Simulated scan of single mutants.
Amino acid sequence: MRTRLFSLLAAVALGTASAAITYPVTVSHSAGSTTVPKKPLRVVALGPHALDLLLSLGVQPVGYGEASTFIKTPAFGSPIRDIRNLGSRVTSSPVNVGDRFNPNLEILTSLKPDLIVGEDYAAQVYPQLSRVAPTLLFKGIDRSEWQKTLPLLARALDREAAATAALATYTKGVQATRAVLAPRFRNQKVLVVWTGGGEGKNTFNISDHNDWTGGLLTDLGLGVVDGDKRDAVVSVEGLTALDPDAVIVLASGTNTPARARADWNAGALTSRLRATRAGQVYFFDYHLFRRIRGPIAAQLIERQLLREMTRN
């Protein structure tokens, strides 16, 4: 069923790739319906999710809005030199337009964009963004959501063939990774949590199989444990009650995978969990595993999982 879904998504994109788009084109998205009058050549990406989608379509942005925690260049209007995880694929030196959810409108206007692409978190400033340029805001936090978004974005950009290729590459990568991981974790309960460390090092949030992270890991053959509900907060004692066979810990905020590992191993209860004793606790970066949520992120996640989970 899962393979059939991937094939269907690719087929849908392929069916729309037979001819060039005729502009103007109208695209429906989470904030409404937007008409793009001409093929966009100057595109701004608001956030890593939008950036992933654009890069997967072969589009380099003229501007970029990041989560404030990760903006290495503090001055708005300056090129961003270091974009976390995706930076090696960016060749355009995009200008820092500020926070991805509330960007600097003056800088945006100065870039003279043909299209602004972001997430629905920026819905409160959608009217202002739309006055600068046609704006598309998409949802991306749920399982398989970007696969629905990508063909829509590709239509706005006249990049439908690239969308077909990206979907096919994604499907191939998932199938290859699943072939390795699924046998290793067959019949095992895998818990996915994130923690900010520090004072909250003994508090964890659960990722379930219907969000982006848990959904991808489920597709990769890992039996993701949901806990009580999506994004549920659980204590160390709660982890003990769930007692999973394996745990994936994502370091969020200013936390790091190395610090999260140290906190975990130093904990009186976490160090005695079945997963810990079996050497099946894995530590990764929340930013990559939960915030980017696109086909390129999936490839990077798969590489990290294969490297860390196949060492023994």
Rank of each mutant, 00 (worst) to 15 (best):
M1G: 12
T3R: 13
G15Q: 08
V27D: 06
T34K: 03
V36A: 02
V44C: 08
D52G: 02
P61A: 05
P61R: 03
I71L: 14
T73I: 10
P74F: 01
P74W: 02
S78K: 13
S78I: 01
I80N: 05
D82N: 12
R84W: 09
T91L: 08
P94A: 01
V97S: 03
G98Y: 11
G98M: 06
N102L: 09
P103I: 11
L108T: 03
A122F: 10
A123D: 09
P127M: 05
S144R: 15
Q147A: 13
K148L: 09
P151G: 04
L152N: 11
A154Q: 01
A161L: 09
A165D: 14
A166H: 04
V174Y: 07
A176F: 03
A179Y: 08
K189F: 11
G198V: 07
K201G: 07
F204L: 04
I206E: 07
S207P: 00
T213W: 10
T218A: 09
G223V: 06
R230Y: 14
A246Q: 10
V247T: 12
V249S: 05
V249N: 02
S252A: 13
R259G: 07
S271H: 04
S271I: 08
F284V: 06
I292Y: 10
I301A: 13
I301L: 13
E302Y: 01
M309R: 06
T310K: 10
T310Y: 14
